[in-house]
């Protein structure tokens, strides 16, 4: 098993945090993992992305030539990466701000209104955690428990209220996907 996922969006949408927390939880589940962020001048345009590989074997290249999943938090991310996704892969898009939909028929598309959902929860900054809930429910790469524990480890235990809102946000995304 070798799964590569690209997380992409505006700076400030927490896309690097999504990738990092996902890689962290994969590590805690005992998988091999690599996390590769975009860096330097390419970040200056205001977009950020990262690639996370998760595998039960040694990961050779942290770069994804044909990623299995794309998490697109804004339209440029969708346009940039939609055609790189491997046939049979999936795109999770933030339908609160992305109006277009991929025309490809060989991939699954999940439209998650995570921006609006975050607003309903009273904190627009948790849109990324909502998206993670949906992503992990659908893919099942790591369980909700392991992910939330990783998230708390990363955020530090000092912020009890932050942990609480993150749990709620994750649950909202998780429940949004009906299986």
């Amino acid at each position: 098993m070798m799964i590569k996922t690209i997380f992409s969006g505006f700076g400030g949408q927490g896309v690097l945090m999504m990738g990092y927390s996902f890689a962290h939880s994969a590590m805690n589940k005992g998988y091999q993992t690599t996390y590769l962020p975009s860096y330097g001048a390419e970040m200056r345009g205001g977009t950020a992305n990262c690639t996370v590989a998760v595998a039960d074997e040694e990961i050779a290249s942290p770069v994804a030539s044909e990623p299995d999943h794309l998490i697109a938090m804004n339209s440029p991310s969708l346009f940039n990466f939609q055609n790189k996704i491997t046939s049979g892969g999936a795109i999770f898009l933030n339908s609160s701000i992305i109006e277009s939909r991929p025309s490809r028929k060989d991939i699954k598309v999940y439209a998650i209104p995570c921006g609006d959902m975050a607003q309903e929860l009273g904190n627009t900054r948790v849109a990324n955690v909502i998206m993670m809930g949906a992503f992990l429910k659908e893919t099942g790469i790591v369980s909700a428990d392991i992910y939330l524990k990783s998230l708390e480890t990363i955020m530090g235990s000092k912020k009890k209220s932050a942990a609480e809102i993150n749990r709620k946000a994750f649950a909202a995304g998780f429940d949004f996907i009906k299986k």
């Binding site: 990092y20 890689a23 590590m27 091999q32 993992t33 690599t34 996390y35 590769l36 962020p37 860096y39 990961i59 942290p62 770069v63």
Partner: peptide, 10 residues
């Protein structure tokens, strides 16, 4: 190289 510097692994 830049990739080794930027990437994360356990």
């Amino acid at each position: 190289d830049g990739m080794m510097g930027q990437m994360m692994e356990p």
